[in-house]
Design a protein around this nucleic acid. Structure first.
Length: 585
RNA sequence: GCGCCCGUAGCUCAAUGGAUAGAGCAUCUGACUACGAAUCAGAAGGCUGGAGGUUCGAGUCCUUCCGGGCGCGCCA
């Protein structure tokens, strides 16, 4: 149950009642009416801005309108009391029983608590990672991978039909470079001494394995052949080898895509030609000359007639060439074809996760998506900021050219998959992130991963102990649903319940805004509230969860602990982190 | 030069257009023979880069300036 949405309908029907009785004019637009949690808990459980938003249209002062609305809200059985505050807020406090009922929602739903049908089964494509097959996954790829995967999980949880997709470019010059680099290692594997990797080829050690594998498969058959003969087979071999490497790397952090699409196939099966044809049929292609880019000095600029796409009709700052002067496809054309393919497959929502260094991508791709789908499909690009790697406070310089890269595998080996995943979500996506190996492995409060996991482990510890001291039946749904939750009446207990009751709304919000970091922050706050409650039992034994002489209160508190464990576990899994039972090392 | 992103406590960062802007770290003061202290309680810390505007209400939206990051050819 999304409590804010639920009470929004309560507010709207109260307004409707006032319209029916003639106390308010008809035709009020309720679009801006919101119900939300006040920032300050002292203001109550819920606040609505209805009176302020509708005052003008209703011809009343905000507070006057609030006075009119309040009585019909107070008539609702779940609303305990309310008042009017500030410029016209209506603050509402819900009954404690309403909150306690949510505890039972959680126990009944288990980890499905927070699921919804916001997405109505709409098909949505989330493309992430999409690294070209030139080497293993490295630190620079990890953040987008985690963000994309978590967004996909979120959207699935709120009822979208999600496809997780990986696109790779296996038709450009990059893979030819890969093939030549592999060929060198292949010769090495066959006994030749390779002193230095020539400029422009990939120096990575991992290519030794590829070369060796090729030598094992094909023997010396390419050794004395010209490049024209071996380039294509070596390329194909290398690409599929590297893609297996990447797949294994992603597996380390629990990422598995549903669909892999590659550029070569889009060209070979005619999708690219078809995409161009469609734009042409829509009258969006013409031959023209572009002005030189503004403000940039280009000595070699000369105006040449080119095949252009009228992307400026769709908000682009300029029309874009789709063919080069020699008639070959321009580099964006395969990407266009790929998006045409997504639309053809029936996706209405297309999400791409990219690094901020692809800044201009959205501007170029959005017109294409609009054109191919006749405006029906929308493209959202999530840009994620770079990750700076530190080691005990010192910046680690990374360079692809020198081969000085930190691989995903190294990261996972050093800090663990859980810490990697959680840490990548401790900032808003577009901000830069400092990833310090020392900090991420630290097992303390500064490390949010352990802080949250520890709260879960503490819950499980209590539940295990309860099962030992009483019987395992005490934790069954029957027992917990029968709990006297009315006995949970301390401010800390109710605070915890309120936080958990907000979970479905948090999930919906994070999914809608494509911001998985909100889950990480929520979990941190929930964990903090739990740790606080736990600590109360230190000073005051009557506040502990397990009470020898009060079984009914014990069961009620176990229901609370069970709910906390459930919500934390559910949230952690949503972002791909394992909710560990214990953290003892 | 143009476009996108960012500027919030000493540091790292939060905050669907809402009320007195919140956490953690660092600093200072306290709490463990334990339902696991990998934790908790408290103190202190702010003109949200500057100036205008829109709004009942702006860290959030608009304009402009300052400061930082990224991108910007028919290259991939």
């Amino acid at each position: 149950m999304n409590i804010y949405r639920y009470f929004q309908t309560v507010v709207l029907s109260a307004l409707q009642g006032l319209v029916s009785s003639g106390e308010l004019p008809e035709g009020l637009d309720p679009a801006r009416v919101t119900v939300e949690a006040p920032r300050d808990v002292g203001h109550g459980d819920l606040a609505t801005n209805a009176a302020m938003v509708l005052a003008k249209a209703a011809g009343k002062k905000p507070r006057e309108l609030a006075e009119l609305l309040l009585p019909s809200l107070l008539a609702h059985p779940d609303i305990a009391n309310g008042d009017i505050a500030g410029p016209g807020f209506i603050n509402l406090r819900l009954t404690e029983d309403f909150w306690r009922e949510r505890l039972k929602d959680i126990i009944v739903a288990g980890e499905r608590y927070g699921d919804s049908d916001d997405g109505h089964g709409k098909r949505i494509n989330v493309e992430y990672v999409s690294a070209n097959p030139t080497g293993p996954m490295h630190a620079g790829h990890v953040r987008g991978a985690v963000i994309g995967d978590s967004v996909a999980n979120l959207l699935a949880k709120v009822g979208y039909d999600v496809t997780r997709e990986y696109y790779f470019n296996d038709a450009g010059s990059q893979v030819d470079v890969l093939a030549r680099s592999t060929y060198l290692r292949y010769r090495e594997a066959l006994g030749e001494e390779i002193r230095e990797i020539p400029e422009g080829l990939y120096p990575g050690e991992y290519l030794r394995d590829v070369g060796r594998a090729l030598a094992t498969r094909d023997g010396a058959k390419w050794l004395n052949e010209p490049e024209e003969a071996w380039l294509a087979p070596v390329r194909d071999f290398s690409v599929s080898y590297i893609m297996r490497l990447i797949g294994a790397d992603l597996d380390l952090i629990g990422i598995k895509h549903d669909v892999f699409t590659n550029e070569r196939e889009l060209i070979d099966n005619g999708t690219l030609d078809k995409a161009f044809e469609i734009l042409d049929d829509k009258g969006l292609i013409y031959i023209g000359t572009l002005p030189p880019p503004r403000g940039k000095i280009m000595e070699d600029w000369e105006p040449v007639p080119l095949t252009l796409f009228r992307s400026s009709l769709f908000g682009d700052s300029t029309d874009r060439p789709l063919k080069k002067r020699d008639g070959a496809w321009a580099y964006i054309m395969p990407d266009f074809a790929y998006h045409y393919d997504k639309i053809r497959r029936g996706f209405e929502l297309i999400i791409n996760v990219l690094g901020t260094d692809h800044g201009g991508y959205a501007e170029r791709m959005r017109p294409a998506v609009a054109a191919f789908s006749d405006g029906k499909a929308t493209l959202d690009v999530i840009f994620n900021g770079i990750v700076k790697i530190y080691n005990r406070g010192e910046l680690v310089k990374l360079s692809k050219r020198s081969g000085n890269l930190i691989t995903l595998r190294e990261m996972v080996e050093q800090v663990g998959a859980d810490a990697v995943r959680f840490f990548m979500l401790t900032r808003t996506p577009e901000s830069e992130l400092d990833f310090d190996f020392a900090k991420v492995t630290e097992q303390s409060k500064d490390n949010p991963v352990f802080y949250v996991q520890y709260a879960h482990a503490r819950c499980r510890s209590v539940l295990r102990l309860a099962a030992e001291q009483y019987s395992s039946d005490i934790l069954g749904a029957e027992s917990l649903l029968d709990a006297q939750t009315g006995r949970l009446d301390s401010p800390e207990e109710l605070d915890l319940i309120r936080r958990m009751a907000a979970w479905p709304a948090v999930v919906s919000g994070a999914a809608e805004s494509h911001e998985p970091h909100k889950i990480a922050f929520y979990l941190y706050d929930l964990a903090a509230a739990f740790h606080q409650l736990w600590a109360k039992g230190k000073d005051n034994a009557t506040l502990r969860f397990l009470l020898e002489n009060d079984p009914s209160l014990t069961i009620a508190r176990l229901a609370l602990v069970q709910a906390v464990a459930t919500v934390i576990a559910s949230g952690l899994r949503l972002i791909g982190v394992d909710p560990a039972e214990e953290l003892r090392s």
